[in-house]
Nucleic acid binder design. Structure first.
Lengths: 245, 245
DNA sequence: AGCGGCCTTGCGGGAACCCGCAGCCGGTCG
DNA sequence: CGACCGGCTGCGGGTTCCCGCAAGGCCGCT
């Protein structure tokens, strides 16, 4: 069994290497990469089926890397090892995991024991292991209160990108009013109010305010914006090529 | 000489401790804290004058911690040790450093040598040491192109918070039109255009778009938003108490 | 069938936003 | 001193945003 480690911090990389070797005697080789792009390349070259991946790396982030690895080999087992349990990361991961694939999400603050256990569970037993704290944010995200649904999340990203209502409508195949309705729901769930007086002296611009609290609540972050921007670029190009109107 | 290390990652904390002891034989004690709040407390209790501080920690970030430490003892020497050279961090730091204070900014990706050199320069020689890469973003930030001035930056933060033009005007003591003029400059410098057609079918909402590219360019980030939100809260309370109108 | 809920869509209007035009003022330079 | 520049301000209008009201469609339940 070959294990690929993708992690840009040398200290963490070394620590991970030790843990992998200690937890998995059946591991024949540990391969190391320092960013997502290199990880993709090495995974392809070595035909690796077991990966430990950091999210949030400097040059190419872990979600991108995992996506292309999974696209090429959907049965690859990936353990995400991250500093944060931000909803943006959790959503980003759960959106790209292929059906039936075994994966894990463990925080860097977890104990040695927990990490080794997760390694064995995922790589040997083929089971999913989600850190309890991460599970927490996942739960919250689908709970009644503060729970942003998938469709709403799309629109939220769109306004975070700075799109117009009309553009969002075209992109998502909705009417203008529907987009605005969804925005209304988002404002509700994010508890965004006008601030002071309702009418002439509202303190907040709701749309901008919603983005602000979404960022503060870690629903969206830099990585998510980058990905969304790339998608948007694709769509804009496609729309310009064949504007079916 | 006592040195306080504020860093939430145990691996990095241990590494820092080793480096400090190796680089500074005159160091009599190394004290460790795992977040900004604890760092403030320990600095006060031990009367520490030499601090190594991580930015971006989970519970209370380094800029907050450094601010209160410096407020209590402006001659404290602080070395910031960070993963990133984002403009938001650089601005955040350079805004709180007291006049004449010695401080440093070194990236975690720097070599062992560089870290030790910086430790000696700052703590012993009382000199400022700014990582070259950080200097780079600092330069860029004040250069002609893409250079957001301090006043513009304030307004940028305000729209990122979701404030109305009118509210910004009140807060900053400007007329409505002046705020909008500044916004215009920001749009220019951030190269934010309407996207497709000028008039009825603009793809972008400029204000939201500006925030989006500001985040992607790392002019603002989560920590900066948190701080700005706290400031805003103070101002709102003050404005409600004595609305001089 | 009838009913109630949920989502979608259209309409209308008040507020906010984006921005060109123009006047005012303090500072700099020839 | 006059010319010029950059920043601040008011005015006006075109567009977008925010949102209440109401009508229609789909679905499940009684």
């Amino acid at each position: 069994m070959k294990v690929l480690i993708v992690e840009d911090d040398p200290l963490h990389r070394a620590y991970l290497g030790d843990s992998v070797r200690a937890a998995l005697p059946e591991c024949s080789a540990v391969i190391e990469a320092t960013d997502g792009a290199e990880g993709e390349r090495l995974a392809r070259e070595h035909g690796v089926a077991h990966v430990v991946m950091d999210l949030q790396m400097a040059r190419r982030n872990g979600i991108e890397g995992a996506r292309t690895i999974w696209r090429e080999r959907p049965d690859t087992r990936i353990l995400f090892w991250s500093n944060y349990s931000d909803e943006a990361y959790v959503r980003g991961v759960s959106r790209i995991v292929p059906p039936g694939a075994a994966y894990g999400y463990v925080l860097k603050s977890a104990s040695d024991e927990r990490l080794k256990l997760a390694l064995r569970s995922i790589f040997i037993e083929n089971q999913c292991v989600i850190d309890n704290e991460v599970r927490g944010t996942e739960q919250r995200s689908f709970a009644r209160t503060g729970g942003i649904s998938e469709v709403e999340y799309e629109i939220l990203i769109d306004i975070a990108l700075g799109l117009t209502d009309r553009t969002i409508a075209r992109r998502r195949g909705l009417s203008l009013r529907s987009v605005q309705n969804r925005l209304q729901q988002i404002y509700d769930k994010l508890e965004v109010h006008q601030g002071a007086g309702q009418g002439p002296d509202a303190a907040f611009n709701l749309r901008a305010r919603a983005v602000s609290v979404a960022i503060r609540r870690k629903l969206v972050n830099h990585g998510a914006l980058e990905r969304a921007e790339a998608d948007l670029g694709d769509w804009l190009a496609a729309a310009a090529a064949g504007p079916r109107r």
